[in-house]
Amino acid sequence: MFQRNLIDKTTYHQKYFRPSCLPALNLRFKTSAFFQPYYEKKHDQIHLPIEWTKTPEDTVLNYFSILREAENMAGRSCGTVGHARIPFPLAYNFLSEEYQRKLSYEAFFHSFAGVGHTSLIKLCRVPDIKHGIRFFYEIETIEGFEGKRAEYFGYYYGYIQLVHEKEGYRISDMSKIEEDFLCAPYHGWSHDADSAVEVKYGNWCKLIQKRYPTVTNGYVKNIYFRGTDGADYCLIFFTLTNGTDVEIAQFRKVGNERWKQINIKPEEDCLKETGN
């Protein structure tokens, strides 16, 4: 009962049901002429220009820009959609050599089954406790499946890891998590940053002595509190299109020390200790 009452039930439903109005970020390589040199080429016949992967940001933006109008919908009655399947072999070359050994081209292509259009709507480099190169991303897709005459919007988020190889930055790992638009409205406390912090770090971990006002900047939320151990804590959340707040990173400092990234897992570190 404590957990459910943390949410204002008169306002939180709408933010979970409404989709994104954010502009697309993956708008490089807009013309059809860009893809002409890659017609009928297999992935192992393509060599990426060095300037496409000069920085981590370039690599990610160019990767999603190439995939923007890639289509793997098993044919639509309206004819060709976007650039059809031409972009997929090109996009596969943005993966690192090690990642390609783990993920075959066939598996890569199959991972886009049903997708006809991809818009990158959120991209932000985030702290990595292992000091690697890590980005948070969110995409909006238009999807259609065999036997269905209508298309649907789909939303996904995840993390992208990058490494530097001899010819530029490559994607070394990538997660993709489907967003849910029904569970959040009916089980809201765990999807709302302020409520989740109160439950997990306060009720479960007994770590909160004093909460400070949440600082919100666009889709980024910073939540600060003074801990019962005398340290200060900062938790960073990103808000998804479905209204859910996802915890991105945790930081702790004592006195005038610098913030240090930490990795508390309330479900494991606190609930198991209390036996709840």
Rank of each mutant, 00 (worst) to 15 (best):
F109I: 10
L61A: 08
E57F: 10
E71K: 03
H131R: 14
I121W: 08
G144W: 02
I133F: 09
A84S: 14
K102M: 11
S77P: 13
F64R: 04
E97I: 01
R125G: 06
C78K: 14
I121P: 10
Y152C: 03
I66F: 10
E40S: 13
G75Q: 05
D128K: 12
E143C: 04
L61D: 08
P127W: 13
L103H: 01
E71W: 11
H83Q: 07
Y99F: 12
Q45D: 12
V60K: 04
G132A: 07
R85F: 10
L95R: 04
S77E: 15
H43S: 13
V126R: 10
P49D: 06
K148G: 06
C78D: 15
K130Y: 14
E40A: 15
E151R: 12
I129V: 13
T55K: 10
G147Y: 05
C124Q: 15
P89R: 13
Y63T: 04
A113I: 05
R149P: 01
K42I: 00
F153P: 01
V115L: 07
T141Y: 05
R68G: 05
E151F: 13
E143S: 00
A91V: 08
E138F: 12
G132S: 14
Y105T: 06
R134S: 12
A74W: 09
V115N: 08
F94V: 03
V60T: 01
L123E: 07
E146T: 13
Y105H: 10
F135Q: 07
N62Q: 06
K122V: 09
Y152R: 09
Q45P: 06
F109E: 11
N93A: 03
E57G: 00
Y63P: 04
E106D: 12
S119H: 11
L67M: 05
G147P: 02
I121G: 09
F145W: 10
H43P: 06
A70L: 03
M73I: 14
K41D: 05
Y63I: 05
E98T: 04
D128E: 14
G132Q: 09
K102Q: 15
V126T: 14
P127A: 12
R101M: 09
F112L: 02
R101Y: 11
L48W: 02
I139Q: 07
E97P: 06
I86Y: 08
